[in-house]
Design a protein around this nucleic acid. Structure first.
Length: 435
RNA sequence: GGAGAGGUGCCGGAGUGGUAACGGAGCAGAUUGCUAAUCUGUCGACGCGUAAGUGUCGCAUGGGUUCGAGUCCCAUUCUCUCCGCCA
C-alpha cells in the first residue's frame, strides 16, 4: 500500500495509549466482530515500543548534533575558524547515525500505521454478538403492512409498466446498475430529494452541497480507505475517488480541525449521488432498484461532544422514524450484530422498509455512531474544559437513501388505478398518481 | 493547457545561510474593581519524566546540498493574476 507514504504524520491511529492501557478490553470487545485481535494488538504494542525507543534514540542524537552546530556557528562568528573546522569533523558520524535511525523510525512508524489501519472500530457494549445479518436484533417495528391488489407487482415490473425507470437504457448508456429515471419517475426522485432535505433542514441540519469526488486523504479520513479500496470507483488519471456516500465529503469538511466546545452540536445534511462498484454482487437480491452502482442519497452528519453522541444517535433515529411515519411506510429498526457491523462503526441501527410485493425487508437507512474512530483518522478534535485537545465523536445516517424508498413506495402504494403518491410528497411532485 | 507571482503558527505579517521578529484573536494566571484595561504565560505533533520540566520535529509536501536551511537546489502540489478553453 504505497499510499501510506502520503500520511507520514498519522502515527497514532487508534489511540495507542488507550490500547496500551486496556489491551485486554480491546481484545474482548473486538471478539464481537468475530475477530481475534490478540496477536494483532500484541504486534501493535511491540511495534509501538520499538518506535518509541527509536525516537528517543534519534532525539538524543539530533540534540547532540544541534548543540554542535550551534557551537560551530558561535566559533565562526568569533573568528575561530580552526576550532570550528575541528568540530565539523566530529559531526559526520552523528549525521550518519541519525540518518540511519531516522530511516528505521520511519519504517517502524509506517509498519505500525499500516497495521492500525487494519483494526476495525470497537463495538459498543449494546452490540449483539452474531455472524451475519440474520443475527441482527430487531428493536422497533411500526406501520401497517398494506393489503395489496391481487395482481400486485414488484417495483421493477411497475417501473416498466408505467415507464418511469428504464434499466436497459441505462445499460446502453453506461452499464448495469445505472438506471435512467423517466418522466414522473424522474420527478418523483427529485421530489424525494427536496422532501428529505426539507425535513432535515427543519430538524436543524444545515444543507451542504459537496463534491462528488474526493481525494485519497478524505478516503482515509472517514475509513473507506484502505478497507473498501475495491468498492470505490477510482479516477486514476487524477487519483480521485467517486464518493460511495455523502458521508465522505461532508465529514471530511472537519478533517484537521480543532473545534471549540461552543461549536457543538454540528449538524449537516446534503444530497449526493453515491457510486459503488459492488464487485461480486449478483442474483435476485440485486434486481431492479435493490442494488445499484449509482444511486441518490440524502445524508445527515453530526459532530458531537463525546458525552452527547449517543443522545445524538437516538435523535437521528427518531428523526428518520418521523420521516417514515409521514410517508406511511411499514418499517423496522435493527441493531446490527458484531458480524454485520461496518468496519468503522461502534453502533449502527439499520432501517428497513417492508416491500410487500417482494415480501422482504429492504434496507433504506443506516444510522451510526463512529465515536472517535473517524475523528482519530481525521484529526478532528476539540478543546475540553482543561484546554486539552480531545477527539470528537462523528455520526452519520441516511435520511434517506432513495432507490429502496422508491421501491417501497411503488410496491406498497400500487392500486388498480396506478400508484398513489404518499400525501407528504404530492406538493413536491405536482401529481398524486402515477398511471 | 501556457506565462508570471506566491504558500511562514488561530489570523495578519517580517525574515536571502547561524537556529521563526512584530501585531492581533482565543485561552490561562496575576492584578486593578467593574459590559473593560494592564502584565505574564500559552498555542501543533511525537518522545522522556509521577510531576515541575525537558528533548525532537513542524515555515505547502517530499527529497537534496550544508556543521547548520523559512532562506540555496530538484520534484510535486495548491492559491492568485493574465492568456487560452468552457457550462
Amino acid at each position: 500500500m504505497s499510499s501510506l507514504n502520503l500520511h507520514p504524520k498519522i502515527k497514532t491511529m487508534l489511540q495507542l495509549q488507550h490500547i496500551r492501557e486496556h489491551k485486554d478490553a480491546f481484545v474482548a470487545a473486538l471478539q464481537k466482530r468475530n475477530l481475534d485481535a490478540e496477536s494483532m494488538l500484541s504486534q501493535v504494542l511491540e511495534l509501538d515500543e520499538k518506535r518509541r525507543g527509536l525516537q528517543t534514540e534519534l532525539d538524543a542524537t539530533l540534540a547532540e548534533s544541534n548543540k554542535l552546530s550551534k557551537e560551530i556557528g558561535q566559533l565562526f562568528k568569533s573568528g575561530k575558524a580552526t576550532e570550528a573546522n575541528e568540530l565539523k569533523a566530529k559531526t559526520g558520524d552523528l549525521k550518519e547515525a541519525s540518518k540511519k535511525m531516522g530511516d528505521n523510525l520511519n519504517a517502524a512508524a509506517a509498519e505500525l500505521t499500516e497495521l492500525l489501519y487494519q483494526i476495525p472500530n470497537v463495538p459498543h457494549t449494546s452490540v449483539p454478538t452474531g455472524n451475519s445479518d440474520e443475527d441482527n436484533e430487531e428493536v422497533f417495528r411500526e406501520g401497517d403492512i398494506p393489503q395489496l391488489i391481487t395482481a400486485a407487482l414488484p417495483h421493477w415490473e411497475l417501473a416498466r409498466k408505467y415507464d418511469i425507470i428504464d434499466f436497459e437504457l441505462g445499460v446502453k448508456v453506461t452499464g448495469a446498475g445505472f438506471p435512467i429515471y423517466k418522466g414522473k419517475g424522474a420527478r418523483l426522485q427529485r421530489a424525494l430529494i427536496s422532501y428529505f432535505l426539507d425535513k432535515n433542514t427543519e430538524a436543524g441540519y444545515t444543507e451542504m452541497q459537496v463534491p462528488h469526488l474526493v481525494n485519497q486523504a478524505s478516503g482515509y479520513g472517514t475509513g473507506q480507505l484502505p478497507d473498501k479500496e475495491g468498492q470505490m470507483y477510482h479516477v486514476t488519471a487524477d487519483d480521485l475517488y467517486l464518493i460511495p456516500t455523502g458521508e465522505v465529503p461532508i465529514t471530511n469538511i472537519f478533517r484537521d480541525n480543532i473545534l471549540k466546545k461552543e461549536d457543538f452540536p454540528i449538524r449537516y445534511t446534503g444530497y449526493t449521488p453515491c457510486f459503488r462498484r459492488e464487485a461480486g454482487s449478483y442474483g435476485a437480491h440485486v434486481r431492479g432498484l435493490n442494488r445499484l452502482h449509482q444511486f441518490d442519497k440524502v445524508e445527515i452528519v453530526r459532530v458531537e461532544h463525546p458525552e452527547n453522541s449517543y443522545a445524538a444517535l437516538d435523535g437521528m433515529v427518531e428523526h428518520v422514524k418521523n420521516i417514515l411515519r409521514e410517508l406511511k411506510l411499514p418499517y423496522r429498526i435493527l441493531r446490527l450484530c458484531g458480524g454485520d457491523l461496518g468496519f468503522t462503526a461502534a453502533l449502527t441501527y439499520d432501517f428497513e422498509v417492508f416491500s410487500t410485493a417482494q415480501d422482504r425487508w429492504l434496507e433504506i437507512s443506516s444510522v451510526s455512531n463512529f465515536e472517535t474512530y473517524q475523528a482519530n483518522r481525521l484529526k478532528l478534535r476539540f478543546k475540553d474544559d482543561n484546554g486539552k485537545n480531545q477527539l470528537a465523536h462523528t455520526l452519520n445516517g441516511s435520511a434517506l437513501a432513495l432507490p429502496r424508498v422508491l421501491a417501497g413506495i411503488l410496491e406498497n402504494y400500487q392500486t388498480e388505478d396506478g400508484i398513489k403518491i404518499p400525501e407528504a410528497l404530492v406538493p413536491y411532485c405536482g401529481f398524486d398518481t402515477i398511471d
